[in-house]
Amino acid sequence: MEDQITRLTSRLVVPFIQVYGIYIILHGHLSPGGGFSGGAIFGASLVLMALAFNLSAGVKQISHQSASLMESGGALGYALVGLIALLWGGNYLANRAASFPLGRAGELFSGGAIPVITVFVGMKVASTMVTLFYNLIEGEAKVGDPEKPGA
């Protein structure tokens, strides 16, 4: 796929898509959107990069193995935030009862644990998009080999 128009357009557009995705993730507790929407947009930008150039350019951005690691890390971070709430004396994933600092409503740094959770969800969704695409394009779906997800 050696198309000049596709390459130039995606090179111009990809930074804006990524900034928009990060904006939606970070404002997940204030405005429409959140971890899933922003993560989907961010992951789509990475997939677009790999599709418009070639697979090695995409792998240079984020490799298959690090995408798999980020995918697991997102789920792990989500669980850890819940466990921190448990440690600080609330229920699992409790917010105010576990005395997370809430801040003033409507500001960017407010909402206690919600922005942190949103960031982890966005990480997980974005890397899931990339992992799906790599699995399909490389054509070696590792069914029944969970030990080496990115080998």
Binding site: P32, S37, A40, A44, L48, L51, L132, F133
Partner: peptide, 18 residues
């Protein structure tokens, strides 16, 4: 609007690519 965002990103973008 949030469903619209997800639909535009996944239904139009990623599904087409896959």
């Amino acid at each position: 609007p949030d469903v619209a965002m997800v639909e535009a990103a996944i239904g139009t973008g990623v599904t087409t690519l896959l």
